[in-house]
Design a protein around this nucleic acid. Sequence first.
DNA 1: AAATATAGTTGCTTTTGGCAACTATATTTA
DNA 2: TAAATATAGTTGCCAAAAGCAACTATATTT
Lengths: 147, 147
Amino acid sequence: MHDHKIAFLRSFNRFYTGIIGLLDEGYLQSEFSLTEVRIMYELHARKSMTARELVELLKLDKGYVSRIITKFEKKKIVERTRSDSDLRSFGLSLSKSGKAIFLKLNDASQEQARQILSSLTSQEASKLISNMNAIMQILQKKIGAHG
Amino acid sequence: MHDHKIAFLRSFNRFYTGIIGLLDEGYLQSEFSLTEVRIMYELHARKSMTARELVELLKLDKGYVSRIITKFEKKKIVERTRSDSDLRSFGLSLSKSGKAIFLKLNDASQEQARQILSSLTSQEASKLISNMNAIMQILQKKIGAHG
DNA sequence: AAATATAGTTGCTTTTGGCAACTATATTTA
DNA sequence: TAAATATAGTTGCCAAAAGCAACTATATTT
């Protein structure tokens, strides 16, 4: 049937795994792991969320997340405030300095992305973006979406 | 300047990281790690290559690769034949049973990809593929290519 | 109120991977 | 061509990343 499409989708995935690896290189030089940065990213994006939400969103082990949050709290990167409605859980958010740390990491990653785009002509860059947009449009509604 | 393009590229990367994770789920239930499967994939694709080539292609630590190859050899997944021209290195290739193991894993991954595509109309699937193709075309020549 | 479920923590373990020293062979250079 | 240097792969050692299961405290259901 559409076996060639399947094969192509998979080859794209292999290809894009390499691209993502490239973009992630920036983080790897920081003192934070990719997972830690992803957590910071989500906290930055949403202002406040629980550990459970992080676990579900990023598909991580809850024990692992718990430790990362503890570490972040010690380093004054996140603040926890116990929820009124459910005393088991906490609202997590980036502290001011946590935000600053994240933004710096974010800048580095931004720079990596910029470098990729600057290697392209502006037509190529626009085409790249619009193709990416189309892919997101197609996949987003079907797959339980991310981002 | 093209800050919005940069931001979009990054959001696509986050999005697609999730998709790749989805596709990799199949492997994760197997007894092999993603890296191990990637090694098998390359050996299957190229018939014979050296550990050094694997290290460069997949950007892995050579000690790590060495151990994986040793493990694979013990499990009769790969065969090593010392190179005539360079006695330090070995040609690596999947054994018959290694090939069978790989193909089974491959089928599982194929099935995952098929499921994603079958959730789309055939027009959507075609569009998805052609967008992916365009992205690869644009990035492949610029970036030191993969796949 | 007893049973069950959920949020988060902790102890323990495995997996993954990095680094550096080492062996053996190749290549370069003096 | 002998000495110096480089390379392929191995091994020992170690740390980071992550999973699992038992546990505490609170919530929800029966």
